[in-house]
Nucleic acid binder design. Sequence first.
DNA 1: TTTTTTCTCCTCGTATACCATGATTTTTTC
DNA 2: GAAAAAATCATGGTATACGAGGAGAAAAAA
Lengths: 210, 210
Amino acid sequence: MYNNTPINIALVDDHPMILEGLKSLLQQHGRFQIFSFTKGVAILDFIQENTIDVILLDIVLSDANGLDLCKSIKQKSPSSIVIGISNQAERSIIFRFLENGGNGYILKNADAQEIIQCIDKALLGELALSKEVQEIISSPSTSTFELPRLTKREQQILQAIAHGQTSAKIAESLFISVITVETHRRNLMQKFKAKNMIELVKIATENKLL
Amino acid sequence: MYNNTPINIALVDDHPMILEGLKSLLQQHGRFQIFSFTKGVAILDFIQENTIDVILLDIVLSDANGLDLCKSIKQKSPSSIVIGISNQAERSIIFRFLENGGNGYILKNADAQEIIQCIDKALLGELALSKEVQEIISSPSTSTFELPRLTKREQQILQAIAHGQTSAKIAESLFISVITVETHRRNLMQKFKAKNMIELVKIATENKLL
DNA sequence: TTTTTTCTCCTCGTATACCATGATTTTTTC
DNA sequence: GAAAAAATCATGGTATACGAGGAGAAAAAA
């Protein structure tokens, strides 16, 4: 691995700045042969004909979904190492990426050293996670909040509340009693451990439950 | 401007990748002397002692608000040209940045050519906007909701409310009367045209004002 | 079919959000 | 230094959210 043959690295990102940044960070290390792509489909075509050792893949692309793309890449070229790069720091997304065959995950705020370390790790067959990603994964309690499971009715009501509707209005439009609405409300607060509905809606919105 | 003296450019961004990318893009053009910063306060300190021609400023920073930072920079060094760089493509934010003294605005998906063009434009005293930014500005019709501008106090209070705090608690911790807090609350609702605080917090959360 | 979950309804009391209107002082801007 | 904007405090009233605790019927899961 560390002999004379250079390591082929493909960068996939639709931001020219990031692409350029990664390129210059990696070029400083000499051992890499770098290819870059701004489109998801382009990398798929490329690996059809060529062999790539490591692919650094942006999760958010304009023309494709990084998660699905990872899967496709792994199908076409199982030996290629795929490392995700993203601003997305959400547990569930990281896990889904790894489930789809990803060999590692790096946040965009990582520095040069960390990126190189991760690539080295991945080349040795290990799971390559940046420091922050490791923290996110290993602490389900702190940074990421365990989202409670909601019933259909609760979702319905939560949605209505988030749209600014009062309990009375909601009761009216769902043909149930105001009292019932308030019970659901209460249960929702307990489930989310929120101090009040405002905090609850904030949590739900942040976690895209609405 | 185009003679032998190099142009001093400061890059402010908390993502090492972006920083590195910009640096290498600009270095290819030779005429620039580049300084880079990952902290907002650092650039403020720096311009106290040194003269900078152009500052490329990320709007989203970990330790500071790009909008306020732009204002501070312009106060300390009015002759410096400040160009905003961001993923944020919202009209209102762009306008606010320009109102705060910004000389231009570029989206992060801009390519090398565009960035150089914008810097050149700004050096000539013109407003430097990337293509996409121009489109956003010239199309007020789009679905994007005009975000109201909030005062410092309003932001503070909105944030506290979103954290589930009651008016009484907020009044206590800010050393003001409950009545005042409720006035701000009322004004916030009017500004956002929200039916109640719950809806307001949802809107604010969705638009990342918190 | 039994058990569990979900949805529904109930009471009572307190807290506070919400609405309309107005006014003074401080700070910022021109 | 004048004008505008922001922050502060005030009154008074209505509506409703919030919190605790209990309970029966319907639907889903075992």
